[in-house]
Amino acid sequence: MLEMSNWVMENFTRASDAMFIFQDDQVLLMNDLAKDLIDQSQIDLDYLKAIVLTYIKRDHSESDDCFGCAIKGQLSNITIPVTLNKDSDTPLSFSLVYQQLSETQNVYTITLKSLVAKQRVDQLAMQKSLIQYINRAHEDERKHISEDLHDSIAQGIFTAIMGIGRLVSEQATTSKAEFANQGELIQNQLREVLNEVKGMALDLRPSALDDLGLVPALKTLIQRLQENTGIKITFINRLQAITVPNDIAIVLYRIAQEAMSNAIKHADTDEITLLLLAHDKRVSLEVIDTGTGFDTQKMTQPNGRSLGLLNMNERVKALNGVFTIDSKVGEGTSVKVEFPVRSAHLEA
C-alpha cells in the first residue's frame, strides 16, 4: 500500500500538467512542472486563487438561476480558460481546472493544463524561424536572378552589341568571308543569351505547368536537371487519367524540385527516381535517391536543410496532404507526399 502511494506521488510529481494542492490559502503540495512555472514565468498564486474564488462565488451567488440545482450539485470541478503573462511577448494560455478534494477541510487542487501552451510556444518559435527562412530564401532567389541578369544576359547582349558595332565600322575593309564569320559569331552569342533567358524563365515558373499540366512540367524539369548534373533521373508516371487540381499540382511540382535539388546538393548520388502514382481518391509523389542519406532524428533542430523540408511540410499540410521523409545514413532518402483528390477529378 505504501509502495502504491509512492507511485501515485511519483505520478503527481512528474505529471505533464502543473498541479497545486491547497488547504485554505496555503499551498500544501505542488509538482515539478508547477515549480518550474513559478520559477520561470513568475506566476502569481494569489491571482490563480482569486480567479477560482470569483468563479465559485459567481456560480453560487443568489442571482444564479441554477443555484442548488441537481446538475450543478454534482459538478466536482470547474474549468476556466486563463491567460497568464498577458503583457509579455509570450503570453501563456492554460485551461485552469479547479477540483475540490475535501469540503470540510477545504482542500482543493488547481491544475494548469500546460502542454498546449508549451506546444504553442514551440510552434511560435518554429514559425518565426520558418518565416525568417522563407524571407531569406526569397532574398537569395532575387539575388540569384539579379546576378544571372547582370552576369550572363546583360554581358551577352553587351558583347553582341560590341560585335555589331565592329561589323558596321569595318564593313568597308573586311572580306565577305570574314564578315559572314563575324555575323555567325554574333548569332551564336545571341542564341546563347536566348537559351539562358529561356532557362531562367523555366527555373522561375515553368509555363508548362499552366499550359500542359503537371506531367509535362515534371518531364521538362527532369530533363533540365539531368543535363545540368549528369544524374540519371527515372520518372515513373502512373497518374493515368486523373487531373490534379492546380494548387496541388504546383505544390507537387515544387516538392519534386526541392527534393531533387536536396538530393543533388547533399546526397552524392548518381540516380534519382521519381514516382507519381494515382490511388483511390489520392495522388502521391515520391522522390527516392540511393545516396548518403541522413539521420532524420538530427533534423529536428532547425537548419537550412530541415527548414526547407519544414517549409515543404507546411505547404502540404495547407492542402490536407501528408508529407513524410524516410532516410538512414548510407541508405538513401525517400521524400513522399500524398494528397486527397476528390473523385470529381477522376475522368472516366
Binding site: 552576369d151 550572363s152 554581358q155 546563347e192 539562358e196 532557362g199 539531368q226 543535363e227 545540368n228 548534373t229 549528369g230 544524374i231 540519371k232 548518381d270
Partner: peptide
C-alpha cells in the same frame, strides 16, 4: 569516377 559526365550539357558561363 562516374558516368555522369555523359549526360551533362555544358552551360556557358
Amino acid at each position: 569516377i562516374s558516368q555522369r559526365y555523359r549526360r551533362i550539357i555544358l552551360r556557358t558561363g
